[in-house]
């Protein structure tokens, strides 16, 4: 399978602040790739480098087989980009902006344009100045989905959208996927990525800390188990692969890593199981675990919380 985006060891400084610290990213052709991380992790910076708006200090980036900085114009005929903060020309109407962006990209599908305006319930006759944040986002999304680009680069595309519009957005992404086009979607909304993405990369402090399919990540992480037994379970904490153990009377909650699941279940079985819940960890669990674990060392490494400053640099 060919790759649409390849990023290796990308580094970018803003003054003293190291926004990207050797970030890796691989997006395969035809997949929806979720690019996850909290504010200030370096998502927007990465996407802006991929769009040729910024140059990296070191490392390499390739988009659709081309150099995003040197081949920007040729490349942009083949992709669309929706920035994180959509600002529009205040005196143009939404309809005019959609057409202008489409034409500057090299054309847009008039039928799809009409259909998308309808679906996103956008009023295209209003001046952009009067649009809310969500409506400005819709204008950019309509222009993006009405294009025939092979790659869509979307920076937090649903921020500002209401839940109904988020559903429309998800359906549109599905449609893009079935057409075999590629989507790189940055987000900090886990449910959205969980639902849409084929593969995921999680970034923290400018480094990719996890990547793979959701199933891969879950396997790495393990299974959440809640078990109630007739006699209180003992000796669980001695088992390899069992972590985060909490016991309350006859109920035990714990996380068990993939290959230790069998041993753990056999162990609790000896205490007379009356009820058992098991669930794969949600992406949220994965993220929280990741950030919780690293927070201690993180705060030592960087006494000033940099994310805020970095957001300024991103914008």
């Amino acid at each position: 399978m060919s790759t649409a985006v390849t990023v290796e060891r990308l580094v970018k400084h803003f003054g003293q602040n190291r926004a990207l610290d050797g970030l890796d990213l691989e997006v395969r052709s035809g997949e929806v790739h979720g690019f996850l991380g909290p504010n200030g992790a370096g998502k927007s910076t990465t996407l802006r480098i991929l769009m040729g708006l910024m140059r990296s200090d070191s490392g390499s980036a390739e988009v659709l087989g081309a150099d995003p900085w040197n081949d920007a114009v040729a490349l942009h005929r083949r992709l669309v980009y929706v920035p994180g903060d959509v600002e529009l020309w205040p005196t143009l109407t939404g309809g005019e902006v959609i057409d202008l962006l489409g034409r500057m990209r090299g054309g847009l599908d008039a039928t799809r344009r009409a259909e998308l305006i309808e679906r996103f319930s956008l009023d295209p006759g209003k001046k952009s100045r009067t649009y809310s944040t969500g409506n400005r986002k819709k204008v950019a999304l309509v222009a993006a989905f009405a294009s025939r680009a092979e790659l869509l680069v979307l920076d937090e595309p649903t921020s500002g959208l209401d839940p109904l519009m988020e559903l429309v957005f998800q359906e549109e992404i599905e449609r893009v996927r079935t057409e075999g086009r590629t989507v790189l979607l940055s987000s900090h909304i886990l449910a959205e990525v969980e639902r849409l993405a084929d593969r995921i990369s999680i970034v923290r402090d400018g480094v990719t800390v996890e990547h793979g399919t959701l199933a891969d990540l879950r396997h790495l992480s393990g299974t959440n188990v809640e078990v109630t037994t007739s006699r209180p379970v003992t000796g669980l904490h001695e088992l390899a692969g069992v972590v985060d153990l909490e016991q309350q009377g006859s109920t035990a909650r714990f996380l068990v890593h993939g290959d230790a699941l069998d041993a753990a279940l056999k162990h609790v079985g000896e205490f007379g199981v009356t009820s058992l819940h098991s669930a794969p960890p949600s992406l949220e669990d994965l993220m929280i675990r990741h950030y919780d674990v690293s927070r201690g060392s993180d705060s030592q490494r960087r006494p000033e919380p940099a994310p805020d400053q970095q957001e300024v640099g991103d914008a």
């Binding site: 114009v73 980009y81 600002e87 529009l88 500057m104 990209r105």
Partner: peptide
Amino acid sequence: GRLDSALGTAT
């Protein structure tokens, strides 16, 4: 902040 949208196209 309008430049990103404009230069994100083939401009």
